[in-house]
Design a protein around this nucleic acid. Structure first.
Lengths: 344, 344
DNA sequence: GTGTTGCACTAAAACGATTTCGTGTTAATA
DNA sequence: TATTAACACGAAATCGTTTTAGTGCAACAC
């Protein structure tokens, strides 16, 4: 510990100037082969590594991307980060991941922390609390200084590059599939409307019902309050005297919980009740019956997002128009829904 | 973009020196109230934020902790990171997370990238490939410069602070429970022996069998080769003519997969076959039947690890002896095993 | 002997901050 | 009037690096 070797120390030890050392290490033609060899040998012996802070300060580039996600114990965000990491590393960038824990204040803190030169760009998925508060000043301030790309959880008020899942289309596809496999009474378990992705999925759900001429029973729309316990809120849907025969839920946890509750009540799945979730994670794969779900392609989303961001960072043209990329969803049919073929 | 405001610019604009600006912003008594007010107002107006790179360079402290984990799409590591984040933020540190993807080379790369002044300390869980290669020189080199704490995946050859799960005890507890609930033919699904945690869990398993006088059937020890497909390797255990009545598997995926395969074969769980896993994640909770498992307390592990690291960073005494902390496991009984009470 | 060229290297500025040590002015005191 | 103290501020060093612009010296041509 402590004895970090620097250019200056090498220079002193070898009786040359720091510039000579610097140039020798980068094989500059200005330095004689003799000196180069000597310096390199010495540097290697002492395991010299340039101080990256100094480098970044000098180059005015950190080659680091700051990523802020709402929570980490979450399969979808994990896969997005994998994609980000991959794309970033390929282009010589490194990734620093921070967590807002769905808190507005922590989101602001994280941004302030990383903004002062630490990162060359931001990749952010907005915290629920921020969406609820609808206060985006920290993003506005940020944009003046360093490029920002929003992914998954976005907001129209913030004008920047974005990558989103086709949540509307996903909601539509899921609902349509339930309808086509014979479900008549279809419910949705979703988030409050301020969560952008939940809202879009609900819109898709409603549109599908409308297109197929199915009336919407208000009791079939459950919007989960995350400050309260999950089970009772879902239980209430299952316990309905006129209970649904198809449920679309906007994430794995809601879907798996609902299915578990239905099973406990002795309901047969998928014959008496079908389930479709969102996010193709481990829960969907290992539930019994396994869950039909909309795969979100988080990895691809991460790759697109970092691509957009790096393009923005390296672009000389600040007026390059912002774009929004939409990642398609895939309906993965497993065993929590009936097969189309059974019906037709 | 581009117009980042610096001390120098403020100074120039206000016709004072940079030192005056710096002092004014930190409310130094050396500066008149008048000037302080003026400077502060100006700084606020232009949303001045000190450049953190410059600060870190000057202070020779980054207040950043580098965390390297093998993979992110993993419930246990996610919870550890939550714990690390929490402990670090409490003490004013920030966390930078990188991923080795179980690759030796990526692990080395990550360390080299972060080592040059970027972080004040490292928190690492060793990649499988590194464990297999048993090459730890990058850690040795590192230790000279910056403190290192290993967590979960550790190695005796590396002399540093460590935090581990009581894997041996967990393996013992799981096996003992299977024995006590009447299982006679107990199998283990584990990793190759070079994975430290898998090995320890297997040792605990074997010790329990020995203590209860049960012979070990070599066919009941499955060590998964991750380069090959998972299912066939587990299938072979389930298909055994003399198939086991109790299975202990060292992670959620193995356990859930094994149970699924058994169910497909029509085996009744837990009556004909019991299952205990490791890691209390979503898979265990949402499997059907839900999985009995050993909770690893990842959050606590993260907190302990960061505590140890920060103590080491801030300690003036480099000879402070290294310590290894052991985090206890909790056996969570759900529905993939028989109840003790049924037996006694 | 003078000018040119090339070599091998150094000095100094720059990145953005903090901090130690001055320094000039004013006002109070002897 | 001379000395001192307080005040308000500035210059310069520092952190570790790179890079531009020299610098000194030898060899060579004319």
């Amino acid at each position: 510990m402590g004895t970090k070797i620097t250019l200056k120390k090498i220079a002193k030890e070898l009786g040359v100037s720091t510039s000579t050392v610097s140039k020798a290490l980068s094989d500059s033609y200005e330095i004689s082969q003799d000196t180069r060899d000597k310096v390199k040998a010495f540097a290697k012996m002492y395991n010299y590594k340039p101080n990256s802070l100094a480098l970044r300060l000098r180059n005015q580039r950190s080659m680091v991307i700051g990523v802020i996600i709402p929570e980490i114990v979450h399969h979808f965000f994990s896969t997005v980060i994998s994609g980000i990491e991959h794309g970033a590393n390929q282009r010589g960038y490194n990734v620093m991941v921070c967590f807002s824990n769905e808190s507005y204040q922590k989101e602001v803190l994280n941004i302030e922390m990383l903004a002062g030169g630490s990162v060359d760009g931001f990749l952010v998925s907005i915290a629920k609390e921020t969406q609820e508060l609808s206060d985006f000043r920290h993003f506005e301030d940020l944009k003046e200084e360093v490029p920002l790309v929003l992914f998954d959880r976005v907001h129209p008020k913030i004008n920047c590059d974005k990558v989103v899942v086709d949540d509307f289309g996903g909601g539509y596809k899921a609902t349509e599939y339930l309808i086509k496999t014979g479900c008549k009474k279809i419910a949705i378990i979703t988030t409050p409307d301020y969560v952008s992705v939940g809202l879009e999925r609900k819109k898709g759900f409603l549109k599908a019902l409308e297109d197929y001429g199915i009336n919407i029973n208000p009791a079939y729309i459950i919007q989960i309050n995350e400050k309260q316990e999950l089970k009772p809120q879902i239980q209430q849907l299952i316990n309905l005297s006129d209970c649904p025969d198809g449920i679309f839920a906007v994430n794995e946890i809601y879907t798996a919980t609902a299915m578990k509750l239905a099973q406990e009540k002795g309901i047969k799945i998928p014959d008496e009740m079908s389930f479709i979730g969102f996010t193709d994670g481990y829960i969907s794969q290992f539930s019994n019956p396994s869950l039909s779900t909309l795969a979100q392609h988080g990895y691809e989303m991460g790759e697109k997002a970092i691509e957009l961001l790096i393009k923005r960072i390296e672009s000389k043209d600040p007026d390059f128009p912002f774009q929004t990329m939409v990642i398609d969803t895939d309906l993965k049919i497993r065993n929590s829904t009936k097969k189309l073929i059974d019906i037709v």
